[in-house]
Design a protein around this nucleic acid. Structure first.
Length: 197
DNA sequence: CATGGGATTGACT
DNA sequence: GTCAATCCCATGC
């Protein structure tokens, strides 16, 4: 996927990333859940402006923003919008498609549904660490590949983002409505019919 | 230089 | 349902 794919409104990038494939070496998984973050809104790390931590967010689109959460987990984002604008798409869950043995070894689990069903889980399963911060997702060792040709666009479920305390009302979480690998079950009646990418 | 919070997870009551 | 683990980094003295 080209850099131009990421140089668009972060919410469009988020929707279009559902169904794409995150790969790191032989381990790969299909994206089934994402959230978008933008500098104009306080839940986004870039809200505080340009700092050491947020420099990747303000950098060129199509790079990875990887940071440590709760001192324990690495979380993976795809930087979006034009350089100079702080925005990114948090990858929250994958459906494992290749390298399941590697994932099971790293996670110490067997069930495929549990390997990548959370933002901290998927980075552990794919072996994604902080050293990959600011690396390219277009042609790097870790990259995001387009949906396999011929596959239909997923049905999208849209709702508020998870696990944040600020701007928790914004409906910027996008899930594959038909996947069982999402990080948290969908609340219920708030389903939106998906759109083609 | 010291402090506090956080886009989570897994174990336990 | 509750709760601790653990560390980067922004902020404030």
């Amino acid at each position: 996927m080209t850099e131009a794919f990421y140089a668009r409104a972060v919410h469009e990038v988020a929707r279009d990333l559902v169904g794409c494939v995150v790969r790191n070496g032989r381990a790969a998984g299909r994206i089934v859940e994402v959230e978008s973050y933008h500098q104009t809104e306080p839940a986004c790390h870039a809200f505080v402006g340009l700092t050491t931590r947020t420099s990747t967010l303000f950098g060129p689109p199509g790079r990875a923003y990887v940071y440590r959460s709760y001192g324990i987990h690495a979380l993976l984002n795809a930087v979006a919008e034009a350089e100079g604008v702080g925005a990114a798409v948090l990858i929250r869950a994958l459906e494992p498609v290749e390298g399941l043995d590697e994932m099971r070894a790293r996670r110490g689990l067997e069930r495929a549904e549990d390997l990548c069903s959370g933002p901290g889980k998927l980075t552990q399963a794919l072996g994604i660490g902080l050293e990959l911060n600011a690396s390219s997702l277009v042609d790097g060792a870790m990259r995001i590949e387009p949906r396999p040709t011929g596959t239909a666009p997923p049905r999208l479920a849209v709702g508020p983002r998870i696990g944040i305390t600020k701007a928790a009302d914004l409906p910027w979480r996008f899930c594959d409505a038909d996947s069982r690998c999402v990080s948290r079950p969908w609340p219920g009646p708030m389903r939106a019919r998906g759109r083609a990418a």
